[in-house]
């Protein structure tokens, strides 16, 4: 599973969380770029991603992801372990 696959997967997860099928994510997308992607739905997105990929983020990491790319990389490295 490469980064592009994870990005596609995360896009679908976020579409589900926010109920908006028009969302397109890139590695550089910030939370502020997506309408309604507030801190409340952010955590929902994170746990949905954890469930999808069978991993567990550190709470400190959850707070400090800069952009979508950082989440993608964290998932990639977690799965590699």
């Amino acid at each position: 599973m490469n980064e592009q696959d994870i990005l596609t997967g995360l896009t679908q997860i976020l579409r589900d969380v926010l109920g908006d099928d028009t969302i397109e994510l890139t590695m550089d997308t910030l939370r502020a770029d997506v309408p309604d992607w507030d801190s409340f739905s952010y955590i929902n997105f994170i746990v949905a991603a954890e469930a999808e990929y069978g991993i567990k983020f550190r709470i400190a990491d959850v707070e400090s992801f800069e952009n979508v790319g950082a989440v993608v990389k964290a998932i990639g490295s977690a799965r590699a372990r």
Binding site: I13, R15, D16, V17, L18, G19, S39, F40, I43, N44, F45, I46, V47, A48, E50, A51, K56, F57, I59, V62, E63
Partner: peptide, 22 residues
Amino acid sequence: YNPMTLALTRRRMARGKAVYGG
């Protein structure tokens, strides 16, 4: 909120129940 939700979600997942999301 986040630590609480994370912990609760993980616990529900471990029990195989549906989680919140979409």
